[in-house]
Design a protein around this nucleic acid. Structure first.
Lengths: 335, 335
DNA sequence: GTGAAAGCGCTAACAA
DNA sequence: TTGTTAGCGCTTTCAC
């Protein structure tokens, strides 16, 4: 059942078997072959616990998410997972379970520190205590998404990203532009929404466009929120309507599109809509967006912490790429 | 750093410290307090590897998914995670990475067997070898979603579920009903699509409705596929159009809805659409659906394997509930 | 190239 | 109620 069996069957010592199994260079090729064969026959399965105890390495990394069921997190996790798999590492998921989840308990769930060799945090806002606890664990760690003080991060430049979105609308000639943003429903990251909103305001100001307060609406970063925001913006007399809406996420933009369709507004003739993210529903829906690649960000993050586990220095990472993808939902305003 | 430190500081033995830390009843309350306090001061963190080695229990369960970025899987994982967290178990994610993923290597990734105490499989179709490997590991395990030969499963009765959907349309008076189904893109579960399609055909046959072949179209179980399927079905002369479409998933139904809107068809006046799943986009979109609760299924599955880990018998589970949710997308056909 | 022995940090009898 | 003594299955010096 263990390494011992193989040792007795082959007549070798546990030590040699262990070396052979790991393919260490100090072992004769013939013995390596023999050991592998016997291991197969016996259906040998290594114990990660035992190996972990002996080496102090678990060959696993933890991924901490504020909530699990968000497009961005799922995609990023997929990227992290892909690289971990390549490296032979396991992925341990720590879900904080939303705002009502017991964050505190989750954070001091002590296992975390010894079960995994490194941590990937998905756009979390950490309070001082949490940050402290994490730092104390001395694990290599990295944040995907919003920037976090004192921790390395990978992600797009949100200010710039929203600048691209609103810049596109402005370039088309729009001036009556509304913004759908708002705090993330999960309430886990304040930085990203603020930076995107600032990007919008900066862009508008630079273009000399006034922004009415009632055209800054909350879409809670969800589809349903986008539907509601769309109603607030569009279900009014025509002269009070914006000619374009810039949404801080594709999910909200899709909601606005739905409401527009329901109200009989034609897109892009009567209304232009732009989103941010590169959600896969965007293409069939013809949504213009500023696409980012969360999966690539996940891969980058995984590689970075893996390297750090192996002793590489924790160099800062460049901003992740994002690009404007123009589809059918935007056009110049009529007249 | 370990249990030993606490022992020396308190003057107790390692054994007592271990017991105290776990709150075993044979320890004096005062010593429990003392040990806990010292542990806190020292910033003690238990080693799951050591505990696992000693007990043979890892306090972790593995979740195996064919691909990670699907609504159903994510929701189900959330449910599994919630119960695991309550029980103090960790979740180790094994992502097979789609049809191109290296399934084989993933399956024999030996760690799996010792890193976790049980397995939750998300609607996977396993071949004989894989099933064999899994059974060999002698872990408690359960499948969520499609039925799998020889393994316990939780999930809805797909035949019945599709029966509810098409039954609703028939009851409204529709007879010209199309079906959007198709094999899951991930190619990981053949059972569910077939059973839903059979449910549709059974329902139609029972009502004496003929089903034209061109009204059985493939939507690949995705939003984009639904958009395309909608075009195939609806972008034709009016007399060739169905009055209703039954979709095997909400994502496809949303795609059909989008295409209908784009073609200027009014829903439900010109066309009724029904989906299956209970996707959260359905409510704002006004989509009638047969809702299931993957999160609840995840919780059920987690509780079941956890119980089995604790020695409970692996009783069969009843079919998960599903219910018709009527919204704005369905109505009686016009004349 | 291989073996012997000493742990890694914890739990689980068995005593006391 | 607490302590003693063995391990759990592997890796790793240090010898040979």
């Amino acid at each position: 059942m263990g390494i011992q069996e193989i040792a007795t069957v082959t007549g070798l010592s546990k030590a040699t078997v262990s070396r052979a199994l790991r393919g260490l260079p100090t072992v004769a090729d013939t013995t390596i072959d023999q050991v592998r064969r016997v291991a197969d026959e016996l259906g040998y399965v290594p114990s990660s616990a035992a190996a972990g105890l002996a080496t102090g390495r678990q060959r696993a990394v933890g991924v901490v998410v504020p909530v699990i069921d968000r497009w961005f997190y799922v995609k990023a996790m997929g990227g992290v997972d892909a690289e971990l798999r390549r490296a032979g590492y396991d992925l341990v998921l720590y879900n904080l379970g939303g705002p009502d989840g017991d964050r505190d308990r989750a954070f001091r769930r002590s296992m975390l520190r010894h079960r995994v060799d490194a941590l990937v945090l998905l756009s979390l806002v950490l309070d001082a205590t949490e940050r402290n606890e994490l730092q104390l664990s001395r694990h290599p760690m990295i944040v995907i998404g919003g920037p976090a003080p004192g921790i390395r991060n990978v992600g797009v430049d949100d200010l710039h990203v929203e600048g691209l979105a609103v810049g596109h609308l402005l370039a088309l000639g729009h001036r009556r532009i509304a913004y759908v943003g708002g705090q993330d429903e999960a309430g886990m990251n304040v930085a990203v929404p603020y930076r995107r909103r600032d990007g919008f305001l900066d862009g508008m100001r630079a273009a000399g466009c006034p922004v009415a307060d009632r055209w800054l609406v909350d879409g809670r970063f969800s589809f349903a929120g986008g539907v509601a925001a769309g109603a607030a913006l569009l279900d009014v007399p025509a002269r009070d309507r914006p000619t374009a809406v810039s949404c801080a996420s594709d999910e909200m933009a899709l909601g606005v599109l739905l409401t527009a369709a329901r109200l009989g507004l034609r897109v892009p003739e009567d209304l232009s809509v732009v989103g941010i993210d590169g959600h896969e529903y965007g293409a069939p829906a013809g949504l213009t967006t500023v696409a980012q690649d969360p999966e690539a960000q996940g891969r980058t993050a995984a590689l970075a912490v893996l390297a750090e586990v192996d002793g590489a220095p924790a160099d800062l990472l460049p901003a992740a790429p994002a690009r404007l993808v123009v589809r059918r939902s935007t056009a110049a305003p009529r007249i």
